[in-house]
Design a protein around this nucleic acid. Structure first.
Lengths: 244, 244
DNA sequence: AAGATCGTGGTACGTTCGTATCACGAAGAA
DNA sequence: TTCTTCGTGATACGAACGTACCACGATCTT
């Protein structure tokens, strides 16, 4: 039975089991035995490929983050530059709302990590998300570009609006998670602000004013099927399991 | 030694010990022994006044919520109706930002509870905050009043703006908690939106804005002035410690 | 062929946690 | 006074957790 085995593959398998069980029962209550059972392996195996729980946790969250980043990228590429920057911004924000299982798990686990890292300095030490300001910068750039091409009101401060949009999206995501708000109402609020930021009259040069996107514009919630299109590619961070 | 003792006083003492230790080391890692040590009593005492950990947790969070609600009420009363509704709205929002120890603890524990309640239905069953929409309704009322008196732009939807302001405040509060953002920058973003919502020129003739259907039209479930000055006053929920 | 290494299973150890049990002195009731 | 109830201490118990240890067959190297 014990042929030579692809370590990275096994680690991914276990990490995804961790993500599933953590998304189901919460990050705080996940144990090595749970992960082992979910992955269909023995406890010893989880110990073998990840020596300690902290390493397992970190790797699992990193994997989740990579997968989600890739998913957002796919979704952004799917909408393309055709419909204009507003559609791109909207896609970026909507991709972060917990509307399906994967985004729900991501939002839950990311929030759990953020809260835990407030009081647990061991967690705070690890970055988890390589650059926490990446989304803010990307969104700011999108808004600035829209302003330059006359599609967005140049009178607003792009960075402030980017911060605001992301902040609203985050809290509303949590509200959706706890069942206090529906995704539709969250989208309505976001659209309200996009209506404000993006002008409705066509700019001087020939341009097509974006359609007033309806609440249910994200019809392609599940289309791109980003699931495992590109499995993490290569992220080598070092330590192979050497023990015994 | 064992004189007759005020139970409610002891419970409060222990509950505040819970709040302190939870604010320091996180809600997830607080144990009955920690609370006992922090309160300077024996483990048995914590068991005696709260029979189970779940009851202790719930009572402690309830106490925290009451204290904070009272604090916000005091702060709102302190600013008074003199400077106008904008100052009141600003005070309401700023009071929620984690700027000192008490607001920091409240924000941290409230967020922890929210995240935990996503996957722990036992926690989700308890309301913790009596009315989660109280702040939203109060803020909406404030904005509507400002619109009626011509101090705020009647073209915006009050409820949507209230939701947005609270959502931004919440996320930015967490950002402050994790050290990603300073309170000053958060205030700057909020002020940016208050500048937008509140007009700068004095009100023209008596304005007649049409009724704008809100995202959800359950108007004013709660009067303005949600916080009562009395700290906790009477909140009887039943069970006295009867055991042995 | 022989020995070293790898992948795997089973299980034990020490700690921590929430809760339960036993005991006992002091205060109010009769 | 006597008895019952109350407040408190110390400690025990069972479960769960992360981790460590031991064993063993399969594979690779030389």
């Amino acid at each position: 039975m014990p042929k030579r085995v692809d370590h990275e593959e096994r680690r991914t398998q276990i990490a995804e089991a961790l993500i599933r069980v953590a998304g189901r029962r919460g990050l705080h209550s996940v144990g090595m035995r749970d992960v082992a059972a979910e992955a269909g392996v023995s406890l010893r195996l989880v110990q073998y490929y990840f020596q300690t729980k902290e390493k397992l946790l970190f790797h699992g969250l990193q994997h989740l983050s990579d997968r989600f980043t890739a998913r957002v990228g796919v979704r952004l590429a799917a909408v393309g530059p055709g419909p204009g920057p507003r559609a791109t911004v909207e896609a970026l924000l909507l991709a972060s709302l917990p509307t399906d299982e994967e985004s729900r798990t991501f939002h839950l686990l990311y929030s759990s990590y953020a809260i835990l890292s407030v009081t647990d300095e061991a967690l705070a030490a690890h970055p988890f998300i390589d650059n926490p300001d990446a989304a803010e910068n990307a969104l700011t750039d999108l808004l600035v570009q829209a302003q330059k091409t006359g599609l967005a009101d140049p009178g607003t401060d792009a960075r402030t609006e980017a911060i605001s949009l992301l902040a609203m999206t985050a809290t509303m995501g949590t509200s959706i998670l706890v069942g206090q708000r529906t995704p539709e109402s969250a989208v309505a609020v976001l659209d309200h602000h996009l209506d404000r930021i993006f002008r409705h009259d066509p700019p001087p040069p020939p341009a097509r004013p974006g359609r007033k996107a309806a609440v249910r514009d994200r019809s392609n919630t599940r289309r791109p099927q980003a699931a495992e299109g590109a499995p993490t590619a290569e992220r080598q961070r070092g330590e192979e399991p050497q023990e015994d």
